[in-house]
Amino acid sequence: MGIFLSKKNHVLLSELVKTDFKLRYQGSVLGYLWALIKPLMMFAILYVVFCKILRWGGDIPHYPVYLLVGTVFWNFFTECTGQGIHAIEVRGDLIRKISFPKYIVVVSATSTAVINVLINICVVIIFALINGVTPTWSWLLVLPSLIELYILALGISLLLGSINVKYRDIGSIWEVITQALFYAVPIIYPVKMITTASPLAAKILLINPIAQVIQDVRHNLITTAAETTWEVSGMVWGFVAIAIVIVIFGISVLYFRKKAKYFAEEV
């Protein structure tokens, strides 16, 4: 992939990322703190509702942090795709007037989400330590999980973003889909709730790569009580989840490359 190493593209990408980052919270009093406050607020709400009122946590140790991991990774996924899908449309003025590799626009749009999630993971780790989780080497496995989720989000952004250039409904459709997806991923409820109702449903649910990533992170970071795809659905289905990510990304890149030539005319 020669294009990824080109100095010119590297400079452009870093300038766009810097600009996005500078402008995002400009003019707000708390500034960058908002990136932290938003997930923490969501966490507070979920904590009160699901830990204190509904008491869904059951016997899962460190359930509040377990919840936090779910929301942080879910937010990362929605923020990434939300920004990425509209990237071409938002930067239409540039694309119409200057020639440059279009994927740069999509990558730069998702970069703020990447920076946010890295900071949020630090917050998660602080909470985990306060909550009495003992650090282990398995914490390092969070990184490959994060990369997997990013590749999935980037793939979806490239694919839907290039369709969105022509059919602006895609952005709205995706918002509706993510709302439904939120309940299809075990974020606010423990997997055990599904397993007791229907073991098959739990197996199918965990083939979703997003669920696989979130459960893996919970398993490696917080507690081995978190059921992973590898345990519930079996090793094969765990690899299927990863294969889904690779296939989506591959198709998206090919489709994007085919369509990118005409963005300047269509956007």
């Binding site: 100095k7 400079v11 452009l12 766009l16 600009t19 500078k22 400009q26 540039l94 200057i98």
Partner: peptide, 24 residues
Amino acid sequence: VGFNPELTGRENIYLNGALLGFSN
């Protein structure tokens, strides 16, 4: 192209330059 009213003149020059394919 790519001029942003919220950025300073200096930042805009570098952004514009990057868009035109110049390194920093």
